Amino acid sequence: MTQQRKGKRNLLTQLVRLTIILGVAVAAFVVWGSVKAGWWSQLATLILEHPEYTITAEDLQLPEVPSWLRRDIRLDIWERMKERGLKSTLQPGVAQQIFTIVAEHPWVSEVHSVRLSFPRSVVIDLEYRRPVCLVAGTAFAVDAQGVALPASDLQDANLPLYLLFGIEASSAVMPGRRWPDGRVIEAGQLAEFLGTTPFEKGFVFIVSRVTYRPLEPDDIVFTLQNREGKEIFWGRVPGREVQGEPPASLKRDRLLALLEKHSQIPQYSRVDLTSSANSSRM
């Protein structure tokens, strides 16, 4: 019995020792793993922050900025990158995140690609928005899609921009977003369709008017004006013509022919491009 008790006691002692040894081993492994993980984390941080891979504004390669655009959008993109913690070409997913930032810029209409060129260059292929008219009484221009663009970013006084009248100022207008008024969106479409010839001939104003029609969409029509008070009634934008109204291509042909034929335009007279009977009165 005594030997059995001694055997059990020895076995219990060995189990206790083994448990202690295993506990110490596990603790040591955890400590070693933590130290190792911390070392790797520090090493990764050092690599990401290494100047060789750190992106600066000068490392952003964009297509040439149009001559009429004062703003250097590289600085805007770089500032947004810093806000989101993007600073190294080695960061996972950095190209896709830069793509998103560029696409959000008001002056960018489309981003084709963002490509990393190691060690730290970022090559961005994009299309700039082109303004087609200024909205009178506001601080904005718009492009052909009616997207609001800060007029303060424009620098070329010779840029052919029609001036749109008949629009109330709105606090809901946001740079890079479509104007919350269908008249402005349609005016942008019309300005793009007209091209620069009417502008060069002095018809620099586009005036929007709306006719309220119960139970139907409001009827938006446009008139072109010059500084001497001459009016040319255009009608509705391309694709929105009502029954009996000539298509936009025919109205534009009439307009260009009239502008070419009549160098001296009578003051305060009016031409209606939607009426064949009045199309020659100029």
Results as ranks from 00 to 15, higher is better:
160 P>Y: 06
161 L>A: 11
154 L>I: 07
182 G>S: 13
162 Y>G: 05
180 P>H: 10
196 T>G: 05
153 D>V: 02
81 M>I: 06
111 V>S: 10
188 G>S: 08
67 S>I: 12
184 V>A: 07
73 I>W: 00
133 C>Y: 09
114 V>Y: 07
82 K>S: 13
172 A>W: 04
69 L>P: 01
154 L>D: 07
171 S>A: 14
123 V>R: 14
63 P>L: 02
79 E>V: 05
167 I>K: 00
75 L>M: 11
107 W>C: 11
128 Y>H: 09
108 V>H: 06
170 S>L: 00
61 Q>G: 02
180 P>D: 01
102 V>L: 13
108 V>R: 05
129 R>C: 04
103 A>Y: 05
86 L>R: 04
152 S>A: 15
140 F>K: 00
112 H>P: 07
151 A>D: 04
142 V>G: 03
182 G>W: 07
64 E>L: 15
84 R>F: 05
145 Q>T: 07
92 P>L: 12
164 L>N: 00
145 Q>I: 00
134 L>T: 10
72 D>Y: 03
85 G>S: 05
72 D>M: 06
149 L>V: 00
117 S>H: 12
185 I>G: 00
100 T>I: 10
132 V>Y: 04
70 R>C: 11
196 T>K: 07
171 S>V: 12
97 Q>L: 12
107 W>I: 08
116 L>K: 13
162 Y>L: 09
202 G>Y: 10
170 S>M: 06
91 Q>T: 07
